[in-house]
């Protein structure tokens, strides 16, 4: 299109990442990139996988064993580095599935027939009311600890809120003035969606993705912390589970055992949060209409 779009709330001009994120968002994106790189290459950089004992129980830190050993002499530093992969993978995978679910369900509820809207949104309300963590605990206990099941469970319980947001976004876009004009000129629904509504709804997918990832990282860590983690794969939550069962935060080992994985989770979630808040701030006109 060569003529400028006369909509009252133009989407952020330019598609540059810098423009979309702003300074705080760029910091978040930077931290998250570092974490992603650590997840990809980290396991190659440490000498062991943190699963089998390599030192004395409660070994003190020394070169090569930077954070010392746990109660059976497993390398805590290796667990921290290798654990990045498991924790981030669950977060990103769940966020992808949730965003896709939310876009499909929210979009269908917004532009579909009234009965479909009613059914989907009542279902969303029901899922939102169910207490998530207790249900996750029961389901994980019965269905097993594999990462695929974990991702499916987290996604099935997390789509409802995001779907509501997308639905509101699509509805607001659908009734905006320039879409009315395009519709009056004979554009079909597909054209409206791809050429016009997507500019309003598209940016909404970023905070939806980011919030889903934040929730998934914390929920996954909580499950592992309760002893429902996959015992064969190191993760931050599992490290904290063992730190807690051994009361490590009451001993001299507090700074090298329970502290680093907790900080890693917090930093990951903050990095995602910075991206989310920054993007929300940029697309504020859209969000304000949504609320």
């Amino acid at each position: 299109m060569t003529t400028p779009d006369p909509s009252p709330d133009p989407p952020p001009s330019g598609t540059g990442l810098r423009q979309l994120l702003g300074p705080a968002g760029l910091v978040g994106a930077g931290i998250f990139s570092v974490l992603l790189i650590m997840a990809l290459v980290g396991p190659l950089l440490v000498s062991n996988n943190g699963i089998s004992p390599v030192a004395d129980p409660w070994a003190e830190p020394r070169p090569g064993l930077w954070l010392g050993g746990d109660d059976v002499g497993k390398d805590l530093f290796a667990q921290l580095i290798v654990g990045t992969r498991a924790s981030l993978f669950v977060g990103v995978a769940v966020a992808l599935v949730v965003t896709a679910f939310a876009a499909l369900i929210g979009g269908a509820a917004a532009v579909g027939p009234r009965w479909l809207n009613a059914v989907l949104m009542r279902l969303a309300d029901v899922v939102l009311t169910l207490p998530t963590l207790p249900l996750l605990i029961v389901a994980a206990a019965f269905l097993g600890r594999g990462v695929g099941i974990r991702i499916a469970l987290l996604a099935v319980l997390a789509w409802a809120g995001p779907a509501r947001i997308i639905r509101a976004g699509v509805m607001s876009a659908w009734s905006s003035a320039h879409l009315e004009v395009a519709r009056a000129m004979g554009a079909n629904a597909w054209h409206l969606l791809v050429r016009h509504a997507s500019y309003v709804v598209g940016p909404l997918l970023i905070p939806v993705f980011v919030r889903a990832a934040m929730g998934a990282v914390i929920a996954d860590a909580s499950l592992s912390f309760l002893g429902l983690g996959d015992p064969t794969v190191p993760s931050w939550g599992t490290s904290l589970f063992w730190a807690s069962t051994n009361g490590a935060f009451l001993t001299d080992a507090w700074a090298r055992w329970p502290l680093p994985p907790g900080l890693a989770i917090t930093v990951t979630v903050i990095a995602l949060g910075l991206i989310g808040v920054a993007v929300e701030e940029r697309i504020n006109p859209v969000l304000r209409k949504v609320r």
Binding site: M214, F249, T266, V269, L274
Partner: peptide, 14 residues
């Protein structure tokens, strides 16, 4: 944002 990001069980340990 900070307290929203800290896992509750870890904050408890701290």
């Amino acid at each position: 944002l900070l307290f929203d990001s800290i896992p509750s069980f870890w904050l408890g340990m701290v």
